[in-house]
């Protein structure tokens, strides 16, 4: 079976995930890294949707947003720079 257009879309999103994770590895400013993490979870949720698991997509979106916000709050209260 060949690859369909949907497959290429998924591939692109997966590629975005990889780029995002690399970015999180390298970005020194923690707040920026966490924002990238928010984007990462969003893309992940889209991938779940693409893979026909909408329940997971909803959970991932909610949990991802929740975690991002939590991390932001904690970073705001502690230190922002990675040393």
């Amino acid at each position: 079976m060949g690859l369909t257009l949907a497959d290429y879309g998924t591939m692109a999103m997966l590629f975005m995930l990889i780029v995002a994770s690399l970015a999180m590895y390298f970005i020194r400013d923690l707040m920026h890294a966490v924002i990238v993490y928010g984007a990462y979870t969003l893309v992940m949720a889209l991938i779940w949707l693409q893979m026909n698991t909408p329940d997971l997509a909803i959970t991932e979106a909610a949990a991802g947003i929740g975690m991002t916000v939590m991390m932001m709050v904690v970073i705001y209260r502690t230190s922002r720079k990675e040393e």
């Binding site: 999180m24 966490v34 993490y37 975690m67 904690v74 040393e83």
Partner: peptide
């Protein structure tokens, strides 16, 4: 990465 937040993000990835 030695920063704890980075470790946490890594775990999630």
């Amino acid at each position: 990465r030695s920063n704890l937040f980075k470790k946490l993000i890594g775990i999630n990835i």
